[in-house]
């Protein structure tokens, strides 16, 4: 999983049926220093807001399992809101 920071959301009315009613959040992917290193558009499942540090799954099989599906064009999913990160 990756560490991300939500920086906004994508508004889209014409989309693949899978994304109907799902929140699309645009997230920076953070590097070890917490600096943005690339981005992704992820489907939110935990109600993450702009500015929050989040846990992002970026792999299709796990993503589909989160939605209990065997098929679907989904890969990046916000699966948690991070409270703290302790590194040694």
């Amino acid at each position: 999983m990756k560490i991300g920071r939500v920086s906004g959301n994508v508004v889209s009315t014409i989309n693949h049926p899978f994304f109907d009613g799902r929140a699309l959040m645009i997230c920076d992917i953070l590097d070890v220093d917490g600096e943005p290193d690339g981005y992704t558009i992820a489907v939110d499942t935990v109600g993450a807001g702009v500015g929050e540090t989040v846990l992002i799954i970026d792999e299709g099989n796990s993503a589909r399992q989160i939605f209990g599906l065997t098929t679907g064009p989904i890969r990046a999913v916000i699966t948690g809101i991070i409270d703290s990160i302790d590194t040694v």
Partner: peptide
């Protein structure tokens, strides 16, 4: 995920458009 986006599933493509953006709000 691109092969999963089309009907019938597993069409041999490696990129697929799955939505048109109205607005990106940051």
């Amino acid at each position: 995920e691109a092969a999963e986006a089309l009907e019938p599933r597993f069409v041999p493509v490696d990129h697929a458009i799955v939505g048109i953006v109205d607005q990106v709000m940051t």
